[in-house]
Amino acid sequence: MMRVGFTVNGVRRTADGVWEGESLLYVLRERMGLPGSKNACEQGECGSCTVRLDGVPVCACLIAAGQAQDREVRTVEGLAEGGEPASVQRAFLDAGAVQCGFCTPGLLVAADELLERDTAPSDADIREALSGNLCRCTGYEKIMDAVRLAAARRREAV
């Protein structure tokens, strides 16, 4: 068992008694009270647990807890800005991109990162960026609408 410490959504957190085989996802969900990142396959095939590790979107289920030591983690819980939903979160609501919502946190983290580096992604760019996030409810159409909407709103806001 070990102690693991890293920064989550801007706050330094530590967890004790971590089993060496535990994933970052387990530590976030079960030890740090941050269950927003979802557990749907635990083998990197669904994207539901997507978080940003030092800014890069990754599957939290494939990061050993010890690998997160002293790093920066951002989860869906850290997307909102000053208590207000981020533009990408609002767009998902407005476009009807949320049904059961289980894929939503991972998609939001992935979409947010895409829009951060590309303010005018093509449809193919959006699809490529989100191709690691399975959704079983929407057929993806409303998710595409949401990302297009969020991109347009970001451009308008600039």
Binding site: P35, G36, T75, E77, P85, F92, L93, D94, P105
Partner: peptide, 18 residues
């Protein structure tokens, strides 16, 4: 809009596994 939507996009919606 969904009444549970705000919870679902912020990660606060409690699924059975949470």
């Amino acid at each position: 809009r969904r009444p549970d939507g705000a919870l679902k996009v912020t990660g606060a919606f409690a699924y059975s596994s949470d």
